[in-house]
Design a protein around this nucleic acid. Structure first.
Lengths: 159, 159
DNA sequence: GTCCCGTTTGCACGCTCCTTGCGCGCCCAA
DNA sequence: TTGGGCGCGCAAGGAGCGTGCAAACGGGAC
């Protein structure tokens, strides 16, 4: 069973802020010994509470100037069509996130691109012509107020 | 100057897939020696091409069952009001991402919550009553096709 | 072609860090 | 009170890290 106590929460919280933390640094933050942190960390990885570790790269430094949200409506809602669309989305590296939502649009995609030409290419040459897709509407990100993937672990201590 | 060559790209690509890679593992993947990988990695961290390392936690395992996109319109577009709203967004841990977009809504937020009660609380008790906010429309994520924050580095090799 | 200089590389070494075995203390049930 | 199970810290062996150093590479100047 996956039970997570207060020590685990401290470890998880610290690691989602800095995934390269040493077990000894972790130990200080959590109030445990390094060896125990190592054991707990390994258990959390084993149980897939920690799904992985990733370097966070600077999109600016690497020349990705455009983030866009793309709302996509499918041509039909058949399982086959849906499957085709999912395969397409999975294949395109520029698409970081893809969700189906309640509300108007069938799907919302978040894409990262070098420039507007890249977005145009994605929308007009890849998404639009695909047989599964009926209509596409894209919005460009003007300003990024906040971007992370941290879970609000503080909520768990209380509840 | 921030120049990134093919070796750096291999290193960056490997590290955004697995941020815990050893310099020796990196060395094998990139075709370099471990010490050289260490040096390059340190340079990339120094130049903030690598912005950080983060553990990727399982929202399912930790009981976060609801992801929502929230479209927010501000009451006025004065600099003061915008500033207040940004401060609010920065303060709320449940909001992972926040952008201002072209198109209808002023802002789009992505929030992670334990359940619909959490969403209701965020929308009705936190966002709606805030003086900077005029109207709020939320969409709940039904299915997550894809979720990562990997940059499409492959594009850089060619261009 | 040749020389020179700056850059990048691989190797070696000292140091830190990781992980596993071990023994101890705590808690709960009998 | 006693016994078993669990979680802890400590210590040691082994792996990994980063710096110093010398060699190889590459590009200009002549």
């Amino acid at each position: 069973m996956t039970s997570v106590d207060a020590f685990d929460l401290k470890i998880l919280s610290a690691l989602q802020d800095d995934g390269r933390l040493t077990n000894q640094e972790l130990a200080e933050l959590a109030g445990l010994s390094a060896s125990q942190c190592s054991r707990r960390r390994m258990r959390l990885e084993e149980e897939r509470v920690i799904a992985g570790y990733h370097a966070d790269l600077s999109s600016e430094a690497l020349g990705f100037g455009v983030i866009a949200f793309i709302q996509v409506g499918l041509a039909t809602h058949s399982p086959d069509n849906s499957k085709r669309f999912r395969a397409l989305v999975g294949r395109i590296d520029e698409i970081q996130e893809a969700y189906s939502l309640t509300g108007d649009a069938d799907y919302v995609l978040k894409a990262v691109l070098r420039d507007l030409k890249g977005l145009s290419n994605l929308v007009n040459d890849v998404l639009m012509p695909h047989q599964s897709v009926a209509h596409v509407r894209s919005s460009i990100v003007l300003d990024r107020l906040k971007e992370s993937s941290r879970l609000p672990l503080k909520e768990l201590k209380a509840g």
